[in-house]
């Protein structure tokens, strides 16, 4: 019984895709994004959405939403993602993305910077940033 309760507790704690909102600057024309494009944008491989809107990713510093986002969309651990960006930076093939401390900071940054794209908890206040639907 204890094991069963522990299992229920752990599974209820696990964050899923629907717990994460992908947000973008309101100037981004697209309202949808595919999960594959989310991955490529946050790996720095894709710099424009399918409608041609240029985008620049912003990352969370840490936290459960950050971990869930990496697991759900990017498929890399935090250390592997940071190494990936370092390899781009030190070969000249990319920039280090901005990293912010909280959902509020990410939402404010995304709302105020043209082309910015980030992720926050689904229930977080996104300020002026627009939520993108996952196709």
């Amino acid at each position: 019984m204890k094991l069963f309760l522990l299992f229920v507790f752990l599974t209820s704690c696990a964050l899923r895709a629907e717990d994460i909102a992908i947000i973008a600057h309101p100037g981004v024309k697209a309202s949808d994004i595919s999960a594959d494009d989310v991955k490529l944008v946050f790996l720095g491989s894709k710099t424009a959405l399918s409608d041609g809107s240029p985008v620049t990713p912003v990352l969370a510093k840490d936290g459960s939403i950050h971990d869930a986002f990496l697991k759900t969309y990017v498929g890399k651990s935090d250390a592997a993602l940071r190494n990936h960006y370092k390899s781009l930076v030190f070969t000249g093939k990319g920039s280090m993305p901005k990293t912010l401390d909280s959902d509020a900071a990410i939402a404010a940054y995304v709302a105020g910077n043209k082309g910015a794209i980030g992720y926050v908890a689904a229930g977080a206040n996104t300020g002026g940033a627009k939520k993108l639907n996952i196709k």
């Binding site: 710099t47 424009a48 240029p54 930076v89 030190f90 000249g92 920039s95 082309g115």
Partner: peptide
């Protein structure tokens, strides 16, 4: 190293 994005498509650095 030093690098910047001059436009959405053009990056330079060294």
């Amino acid at each position: 190293n030093v690098a910047t994005r001059l436009t959405s498509r053009l990056r330079v650095g060294a």
